[in-house]
């Protein structure tokens, strides 16, 4: 729930990003202004090619903006060195991808442990924590399963567990339900909603799926490289509940 005391987790001002140069220059972002609050679940919606992916890439320090200021969790992303960006992502960001992007050769537990192993934690401790997080997303019984042995919904829950395991302050979800059927999509969104409510983690969810809008606190509409509207969706959420 956002109120006047809620701290800002992400603050972006006048973000501009272009691809190419000269005659082939394409504006992906034309001055994006957007705030995200701690514990908020923000839905970022808009047509294909409007700049959503570019925006989340900048917020997660995967891409450098041409101009503008983007402070994420108190860090000016554009001012960070490459090494600092790597460290920042490692410690503070969780990712949930449309195609799950689980490593096919690893079990669910090993997949979830990957962010901890990247942080340099020893394997035993990482596997222990991975199991605990898998328990919390309801997959405690499937820790030894390979991704190919899990349903789409289960794979996405493993991916969410992987995004959660290192306790990031910001989780970015890119079309988390578009590869799932309606029921699995709803379950995944309930899980993400629960995370936002319980852990004060900020979630930025990029989606086209209007059936899940009501899980968000706010919705930001994007078009042609700009945020054209933000709106509270509390009422919709209450209606759905």
């Amino acid at each position: 729930m956002i109120n006047k005391q809620t701290k800002i987790a992400v603050q972006c001002r006048s973000i501009v990003k272009t691809y190419g140069s000269g005659a082939s220059e394409v504006f992906a972002l034309r001055g994006v202004d957007l705030d995200l609050y701690e514990g908020e679940l923000l839905m970022l919606v808009g047509p294909s090619g409007c700049g959503k992916t570019t925006f989340i890439s900048i917020v997660t320090a995967l891409l450098k903006a041409d101009s503008g200021v983007c402070e994420v969790l108190g860090q000016d992303i554009n001012a960070l060195t490459l090494e600092q960006k790597v460290l920042f992502r490692r410690q503070s960001i969780g990712f949930v991808f449309q195609a799950f992007n689980l490593l096919p050769a690893l079990t669910a537990q090993e997949n979830v442990a990957v962010p901890l192993l990247i942080q340099g934690r020893n394997r035993k401790a990482a596997m222990h924590e991975a199991k605990a997080v898998l328990d919390s997303v309801g997959l405690g019984e499937r820790i030894g399963a390979l991704p190919s042995e899990l349903s789409g919904g289960q794979q996405q829950r493993v991916a969410i567990a992987r995004a959660l395991v290192h306790r990031p302050k910001l989780i970015v979800c890119d079309e988390p339900t578009s590869s799932l059927d309606h029921k699995s999509g709803q379950m995944v969104m309930q899980l993400l909603r629960h995370i936002a409510d319980q852990s004060n983690t900020t979630l930025l969810v990029v989606t086209h799926d209007n059936r899940i809008y009501h899980f968000g606190d706010r919705m930001a509409h994007m078009d042609d490289g700009r945020i054209i509207k933000t709106e509270m969706i509390q009422e919709k959420k209450e209606t759905s509940e």
């Binding site: 997660t60 995967l62 090494e83 790597v86 992502r89 490692r90 990712f95 992007n101 490593l103 990247i118």
Partner: peptide, 16 residues
């Protein structure tokens, strides 16, 4: 490459 991109996004360093 896709799997390495995932690692990279998660904060795996070049040396890793």
């Amino acid at each position: 490459l896709k799997q390495y991109a995932v690692f990279k996004a998660m904060g795996a360093s070049a040396s890793m």
